[in-house]
Design a protein around this nucleic acid. Structure first.
Length: 659
RNA sequence: GCCCCAGUAGCUCAGUUGGAUAGAGCGCGGCUUUCCUAAAGCUGAGGUCACAGGUUCGAAUCCUGUCUGGGGUACCA
């Protein structure tokens, strides 16, 4: 149900006689919006005020003229002019009831879908397969999945592709680790655990070497910074009133402190390593490990027999592990062309860029220089190796041939926005101008300390233990025996497990989706498994209550066929408000996809659940004053349930019939 | 240095692309269970929308400048 579309059609007829300029008419129609002031209106048209100048009349007069020409008798209960010239529309409850009734008998609860279906390719999740998945992967995965679901539901063709990092430097680390540090028994028993141990171990040696190498540089930096502070202080003392001098002094002090902090943390890291003689023995023996790792990676990319064999051995293990996580999250992809899939295409891509004179040689690397960017996009390194950027170009070209998309969405961390800006500029130059490329960026996942989660800092939370913890906490709250008894619910263990899993996983997904994706997001386990407030549990709980009413209704003889064939009526204010909210489901979905913001949907669902709770309190269903009122409310209840369930499902979150 | 993003209630965040008196959740105070799940509902306190100018019928939203924080910035992904 697209109320806005309908209203705009009616307004278009009225405005046609008043406004000659078609552009002005179009912009006026866009000023018809859902009202922010529910006491005043359901929808409002803020048309008259900006027309005052072009039409040379006072806004109130214009508003009245528009209202006089409007034909809205069937839809609206009242159309009034207020304030500076707002046209306020109040929908007619009878009309709303009729619309809801037809939504109730519709499989898609009245969501008609888009008039202009498009083909979307959505690139999301995209973890590095050899590293254990961690909390940082959840945003891309969950947001991308939600966007894919919603676009599909709205009638678009959606192709999802998990662009796995299965070809990068991390494989050099694992191969090197496997050759020198492996524990055959552990590998035989749990290959992925052993591989990730090797990955972390090699990385820790690299980190140690980096720290050692950084010390002299930092010491030099500190000397310089101290000089800068002295200089700035003298300047500031000479001119205490000079704001710039004070600022410079402050900046110099900060610089010095940063360098000192960094040196201290490096030294702490080194000391920690030195306290471990076994580690030091390996570190000494494998000095220069970074170069050795790069050599292993390069050998793999050259097709070295041994390394290829290992790669083919490792990858399936890694994929099994990742797929287990996806299965638990309920997420599937149409395709999983990893980076390795494009490897053989890369040299041709670079040659083509070169042939078209788009790419040039610079400092031994092959680069595409772009207007508006300081640094070029490097597509081949000095040493001849290809990069992320090269693969991305090859991937875009492949998708273009394979799927002919109207739009490609990349659901990736905002820190890569410059990379994507460059990529899209290159793609445009290559000639992919008819496809819309969009970086659906999202804020960094931060720890409670406000710093980004890092794969290199051994403290990273693995994704699986995280899910386990959420489920465990959900169990403790939802399956508390006292609570269940109070609610009159008798559950066996299997059902409890299912409920805890649904609520726990839902909590993690919802916490992520309910934030505006563009802002940074503090991952706080304590908060997200709070099962009250704006959380998935609150909505799931509301759904369970709708189902509970429907179950009890059937027991007292109000079966589905009876309330389905009864007439739906909106009488009480809360019923009308709830009815309007239900009619706006499609509006919320459409709006959410305007800028691909899933939090628009979480807000809608939360608001719907809240309204249902009010309705639940104020309007008895099973004990309504009359049977016709009861049956009508039962229809409304069922529609609430279906809307909540559908909405959550689009977000990748499940429901249970009782909890 | 340059570029990008953010700054809204004690805390965590929304704010429908410029609309009317800026909203939720948590926390804090009060009220409501003979009634369909009280994980609920109702209600109160709490704000210089970082700061200063500007644009216009109208600004948290757009422009300019300043402050604060985060990110990026030639061979990582």
């Amino acid at each position: 149900m697209q109320i806005l579309t309908l209203l705009r059609e009616r307004f278009a007829v009225a405005l046609a006689e008043l406004i000659a300029d078609p552009q002005l008419r179009a912009s006026s129609l866009e000023r018809i919006v859902p009202s922010r002031e529910p006491q005043m209106a359901d929808y409002q048209a803020n048309i008259a005020m900006p027309l005052a100048k072009p039409l040379g009349k006072p806004p109130l007069e214009i508003a009245k003229e528009i209202v006089a020409k409007l034909q809205l008798d069937d839809i609206c209960e009242s159309v009034t002019v207020a304030g500076a010239g707002y046209i306020n529309l109040r929908l007619s409850p009878a009309w709303m009831a009729a619309q809801l009734q037809s939504a109730a008998s519709d499989e898609r609860i009245g969501v008609g879908g888009t008039a202009s279906p498009k083909i979307y390719v959505i690139d999301y999740s995209s973890p590095n397969v050899a590293k254990p998945m961690h909390v940082g992967h959840i945003r891309s995965t969950v947001i991308g999945d939600a966007i894919a679901n919603v676009l599909r539901f709205l009638g678009h063709r959606v192709i999802t592709d998990n662009h796995l990092g299965d070809w990068g430097t991390q494989f050099g680390m694992i191969i090197y680790g496997y050759k020198h540090f492996r524990d055959p028994a552990a590998y035989a028993q749990r290959p992925v655990a052993e591989l990730s141990r090797l990955y972390r171990y090699v990385q820790s040696i690299i980190a140690y070497e980096d720290a050692v190498a950084a010390v002299p540089k930092l010491e030099a930096q500190i000397v310089q910074a101290a000089q800068r502070v002295d200089l700035a202080r003298k300047k500031q003392e000479a001119a205490p009133e000079d704001k710039k001098a004070s600022k410079e002094l402050q900046a110099a002090k900060n610089g010095l402190r940063n360098s000192e902090d960094e040196l201290a943390s490096n030294q702490a890291k080194i000391a920690e390593c030195k306290a471990n003689p076994e580690f030091m023995a390996d570190a000494t023996q494998h000095a220069g490990i970074n170069e050795a790792v790069l050599a292993e990676t390069a050998a793999l990319h050259r097709g070295d027999k041994e390394n290829m064999k290992l790669w083919h051995e490792f990858v399936p293990h890694c994929l099994d592990e990742i797929h287990a996580v996806y299965q638990r999250l309920g997420i599937q992809f149409d395709h999983e062309y990893g980076e390795s899939y494009y490897h053989d295409l890369l040299s041709a891509v670079v040659e083509e860029l070169f042939a078209k004179s788009l790419a040039v040689q610079s400092n031994g690397a092959i680069c595409v220089f772009l207007e508006g960017f300081d640094a070029p996009m490097i597509v081949r390194k000095q040493d001849g190796a290809y990069l992320y950027a090269t693969t991305d170009i090859a991937t875009a070209l492949f998708r273009e041939r394979e799927f002919e998309p109207d739009a490609c969405l990349y659901v990736v961390d905002h820190r890569q926005s410059e990379h994507f800006n460059k990529l899209f500029a290159v793609l445009k130059q290559i000639g992919l101008t008819h496809t819309e490329f969009k970086h659906v960026s999202f804020g960094t996942v931060l720890g409670t300390d406000g710093k980004p989660f890092k794969t290199r800092s051994g403290t990273t939370v693995g994704l699986e233990p995280l899910l386990d913890e959420a489920v465990e906490r959900a169990w403790a709250v939802v399956c508390d025996p006292n609570r269940l008894q109070g609610a009159g619910i008798d559950m066996d263990d299997a059902e409890k497990r299912h409920v805890a899993e649904t609520v726990g996983i839902g909590a993690i997904k919802y916490a992520d989706l309910s934030h505006n994706r563009t802002s940074n997001y503090v991952f706080d386990m304590d908060k997200m498994v709070q099962l009250e407030g704006n959380t998935s549990a609150y909505i799931q709980y509301s759904y369970a209550r709708t189902q509970s009413i429907l179950r009890k209704a059937a027991v007292q003889g109000w079966t589905e066929d009876r309330w389905q064939s009864s007439s739906l009526q909106l009488r009480e204010p809360i019923e009308i408000a709830l009815g309007l909210q239900l009619m706006r489901f499609e509006e919320a979905l459409e709006q959410s996809m305007q800028e691909y913001l899933p939090n628009v949907i979480t807000e809608y669902l939360f608001e719907t659940a809240r309204m249902f709770s009010s309705f639940f309190d104020q309007c008895p269903v099973l004990k309504a004053d009359s049977e016709s009122v009861g049956l009508s409310r039962l229809q409304l209840t069922a529609l609430v349930g279906r809307t909540l369930k559908t909405g959550l499902k689009l977000l990748g979150i499940g429901v249970v019939d009782r909890m």
